[in-house]
Design a binder for these strands. Structure first.
Lengths: 339, 339
DNA sequence: CTGAAAGCGCTAACAT
DNA sequence: ATGTTAGCGCTTTCAG
């Protein structure tokens, strides 16, 4: 049989209550006793049984990370796992465990309800891609500590944090202007793609401040695929007023855009600058290498879990905020010394 | 206060033991009682407290996935997360939870020891990249249910599963020969990179069966980076005996290799075929698109967790096996109708 | 500063 | 088929 708190108590000639207090760093124990007990614990190679601890103290020191774990997610959305890594890193530093649950189409809120009711976690970090209104209802009804990563696509009263896509859009536009580009186009995702539309709004604002504007026909929205990016740029090149720089709302679109540009024998960056967002390691394999406005999503994850832990202590803490600043990585695709 | 098993027992006019048996699907309860109790549970919206269950039954129904979660891991090694997703998927189907722990350089075996001693999980799935001999010692001493994903790089008595890299190498070589290539080179990782060396061995064997061989000067080993891949191919092109096809041990190397080939105005696939392993979604963005021998790592993860659960039931089950068959994805880089 | 003892909510052996 | 009851190993009052 494994060794328990009783064995330690006996060996140290104290009560189990005292041992427990030592384990939990209670200040009311004399230094001498603390040292003695700790010594015995080490000697006996004692570790408190975590199920018993969880049970007795009615808390698990476990946080659930809820997201989608389908086939290919890791390839298609490494960002999500990078966030998860950041969350896990911070939690382990704070002696919390992180368990991952897969939320799929059918059972989204059932899973959540069960976790809350079973008390198998003290809190929940949720990737925005899986939240629904029903889920929100359950979480808020139970007043369960949570933080959503990413701004929900509807007016929500859940707590969330996100990076500032608006600001990212501004940075991309400002950089292009600094480099001397003046006639800028935006190729983005569909209208419901909030990330893309926020970036666009940021770009528009930044340009307006410099007395520039993106003309209507230089804004395109479509699916976030290479194929669509390619098509959207092709159609822009048919216009008489050809832009001298393109902001692409993501890497997929950027790849299609570059393909189209190259096929037309337009030089990047001399004739046309290209910039996009989020630094996949593969941004560097394009020729020329892509400039990007990047977000430190690992850091975003760490911040989220920090908030999570604060919320466990102060459950009424309400946060809805844009955090983590974007940073500009200048590579070859926007280096244009006309500026 | 949340509702407990006692409340259910009272409402259903049975003992808590009976309710417990219903919860756990014991066959010794009459259908009528089962239905009645289930009905009451639903009515009261009762869910058993999982900490109490874990504590009482001395098992957690939790599996730890141990790996490295440092910054950029998700970008550099999406495979690892794809495996993790597969593991999580299967476990949740079997009503197990999965918690992730980060194993870093300093504290690798301490973490493991703690988890085992604290009984915070029933088993452990470990990514091969974090195993050490010390860790093996701890796991085996405790006879803790485990499965390592990937074959350890030393003679180990841990249980592991891996995909068959040897077979993958054979498939790559056979495909090239089928396409009519005869003079094949292998550009791989360093010697300690077992994945690469197994693939090489497979390729050599397959070629030997067809009466072909890779000459000594057509085998190169170096770091798995684009830069090194580039350099290694450059040096091969200096040789008088120029190969007509290249097997690259991974995507990074393949990218460098293709760059070199293109700069020498050698046509792919006409003058030189290129094949590599593991289908990143980005394998498709190269020009021409890369043929690859792919492994279904999501499936590998699912198989691993299946074994994991078997091991919990039969702890003396010993497995060391190559599983999950590779499959060939033929794209543009090897289509050569000389064959 | 330390200890006695009452649980925490459930499971499982045993009895009926 | 169902109930009684003794724990599971720890935390936490409360008393001393």
């Amino acid at each position: 049989m494994a060794i328990t708190i009783k064995d330690v108590a006996k060996a140290a000639n104290v009560s189990t209550a005292t041992v427990s207090k030592v384990i939990n760093g209670s200040p009311s124990i004399s230094i001498k006793t603390v040292e003695n007990v700790k010594h015995i614990m080490k000697e006996l190679n004692y570790y408190p049984n975590s199920s018993a601890q969880n049970f007795a103290r009615k808390s698990t020191r476990n946080i659930v990370f809820a997201t989608r774990l389908e086939r290919n997610t890791a390839f298609e959305n490494p960002h999500m796992f990078e966030i998860m890594s950041g969350v896990g890193k911070y939690l382990s530093k704070k002696n919390y465990t992180m368990s991952i649950i897969n939320i799929d189409e059918e059972s989204r809120s059932d899973e959540i309800e069960r976790i809350i009711a079973q008390k198998s976690a003290d809190g929940m970090v949720i990737h925005v891609s899986v939240v629904t209104k029903e889920m929100e209802y359950i979480i808020r009804k139970a007043e369960f500590p949570h933080i959503v990563i990413g701004c929900p696509s509807y007016e929500s009263r859940l707590c969330w944090i996100d990076n500032n896509n608006y600001l990212s859009g501004e940075m991309a536009a400002n950089h292009l202007v600094d480099q001397g580009y003046r006639n800028i186009a935006y190729i983005g995702g569909v209208e419901e793609d909030f990330i893309s539309t926020h970036r666009l709004q940021g770009a528009i604002t930044a340009l307006a401040e410099k007395g520039l504007k993106i003309t209507e026909e230089h804004i395109r929205c479509g699916e976030s695929t290479r194929q669509e990016g390619y098509k959207m740029l092709e159609s822009i090149l048919l216009e008489p007023n050809r832009p001298d720089a393109i902001i692409c709302s993501n890497n997929h679109i950027a790849l299609g855009v570059m393909k189209s540009i190259k096929e037309h024998n337009i030089r990047i960056p001399e004739d046309m600058g290209v910039i996009t967002f989020d630094d996949y390691p593969f941004s560097q394999i394009t020729d020329p290498m892509l400039s990007v406005v990047n977000i430190d999503v690992y850091d975003l994850g760490q911040q989220a879990s920090k908030l999570m832990i604060n919320k466990i202590k102060k459950p009424n803490l309400q946060v809805q905020t844009y955090t983590t600043l974007p940073n500009l990585i200048i590579r070859e695709s926007t280096i244009n010394n006309k500026g």
